[in-house]
Design a binder for these strands. Sequence first.
DNA 1: AGGCCTTTGTGAACGTGTGCACAAAGGCGA
DNA 2: TCGCCTTTGTGCACACGTTCACAAAGGCCT
Lengths: 258, 258
Amino acid sequence: MATGRSHTERTRGIPEATVARLPLYLRALTGLSERSVPTVSSEELAAAAGVNSAKLRKDLSYLGSYGTRGVGYDVEYLVYQISRELGLTQDWPVVIVGLGNLGAALANYGGFASRGFRVAALMDADPKLTGKMIAGQAVRHVDELESVVRENGVSIGVIATPAGAAQEVTDRLVDAGVTSILNFAPTVLTVPEGVDVRKVDLSIELQILAFHEQRKAGDGLPPDAEPPASGPGISGAMVRRRPSSAPKSDREPGVQPA
Amino acid sequence: MATGRSHTERTRGIPEATVARLPLYLRALTGLSERSVPTVSSEELAAAAGVNSAKLRKDLSYLGSYGTRGVGYDVEYLVYQISRELGLTQDWPVVIVGLGNLGAALANYGGFASRGFRVAALMDADPKLTGKMIAGQAVRHVDELESVVRENGVSIGVIATPAGAAQEVTDRLVDAGVTSILNFAPTVLTVPEGVDVRKVDLSIELQILAFHEQRKAGDGLPPDAEPPASGPGISGAMVRRRPSSAPKSDREPGVQPA
DNA sequence: AGGCCTTTGTGAACGTGTGCACAAAGGCGA
DNA sequence: TCGCCTTTGTGCACACGTTCACAAAGGCCT
Ligand SMILES: NC(=O)c1ccc[n+]([C@@H]2O[C@H](COP(=O)([O-])OP(=O)(O)OC[C@H]3O[C@@H](n4cnc5c(N)ncnc54)[C@H](O)[C@@H]3O)[C@@H](O)[C@H]2O)c1
Ligand SMILES: NC(=O)c1ccc[n+]([C@@H]2O[C@H](COP(=O)([O-])OP(=O)(O)OC[C@H]3O[C@@H](n4cnc5c(N)ncnc54)[C@H](O)[C@@H]3O)[C@@H](O)[C@H]2O)c1
């Protein structure tokens, strides 16, 4: 779901898990930089980023040998090196497609521009939205999508349309030349090789939390678990039953009728 | 970042990676169910969920032996089993704290309620927002946080406040009894053992995309890479230089002056 | 009733990620 | 100048996740 590349092809040596943490380090470093802290040890920086220090050191070691033993890392220098590795020393024009509740919130989000991501255009299919000013920018009609992408050299698209429209929007973005997509719609996108898709899915996150929550609050699954197949079922109104014959194993050991 | 549990302690056998995919399968299955498809093969379901079929089968095998060889999986039955495993057969009251752009969008989001997550309360610190109706619900003041959590038995909190307020809100949520937090603020939260935090961070996702984008568009890092330390630098105005003496290795092999 | 053909469930091999623990580096104070 | 003490960078072992490939299961058609 992350890269879309053939998996054996490692990204010039930097592990994906490391790449995903670099922005975290960068944020922590930026904080230190603002407080004019000149150097940090791996221990301190790791604490600020919420990881353990061995992992941090290993991650940084993929970028190069940028620390000084006995001292730590130079904050400014490391900010620069990580920024460069992440491609943040250049400007990335972005289009947001779909300006409903979420799209509008995204457009208004300050942290967007703060890291080299520039909102090049806001696009929606609803003619009533066309021309509306959001975050100091007029919403344009999706018909202009291709020209906007080409003229601005947009390579990153953000999708905040309903799920039903997401694949179509994706196809158009890709045709126009976009090669990275951040998808907020709860749907699986199909893209050609070489196009990266990342998804943000609120509902999935909540479901994962619910799973762990269930574990924490009184272990054991909820009541209606597969009843032990002992003789004919007492109640025919069991919420849902196995479609046909009894299964071989049902996880809970439970006495099987041999 | 996901669980907060000691790592050796596996969650009653279901791997975390599998848990994270179950909601995906559930969504695909729900779609099939709505179209009254009675059974699916692992191949079909995997395609719908965007994973490969071996992975899907292994994932489902952790739940139990719910398929029929030669036929596939009964859609309704599997929907039920996954829902139960994820804890979606019960209702999860949720509070949203911070009703700015993002919080309001979340409150208005339909996909929230659709899976057993009920928005029990909307809370903000801004007195001007108190009483304002959002998504059919009056915003309440954060002062009421503790009582709202206790009265509604809320165990999941969603944080959509500015980063600066997130830790304080977290502490209060946790004190009041919340044990799962979904954090949208770009900051690292510290929580006691037993509390799960998941974060959604737009900015990190974009940075990861930028990284891969940079790789795709003309490989090799941006121009200003550490210049090969050959003699005295030509331009003193190099954007940023190593703080002190030259490093041992700088990743790019590059000729080192012995 | 029997055999065929599809599809599951899983053992085993492999790849990726994590964390420990320590040798070597190197600044800094004496 | 020398040695000490902190902190990096990394080899190694282990845990976790992914994928392959196939035996066994079991419906279904003849
Ligand atoms: N609101 C949230 O908090 C939230 C959270 C998670 C996921 N999502 C998902 O994000 C997406 C947007 O959510 P929302 O609440 O903003 O929905 P919304 O209905 O408020 O907005 C959707 C917007 O997309 C536009 N649109 C529809 N088809 C389009 C097309 N083909 N091209 C361009 N624009 C098009 C609509 O005109 C509308 O303005 C949905 O898929 C939703 O499931 C939303
Ligand atoms: N808008 C986005 O698309 C977006 C995207 C990613 C991340 N974020 C993050 O989500 C958070 C919210 O973003 P936003 O755009 O909605 O900001 P916002 O400023 O519009 O809203 C923040 C809200 O939080 C309230 N608040 C402040 N302190 C509070 C406290 N102690 N208790 C309760 N409420 C408090 C404020 O009154 C305000 O209503 C921020 O941390 C932001 O970085 C936003």
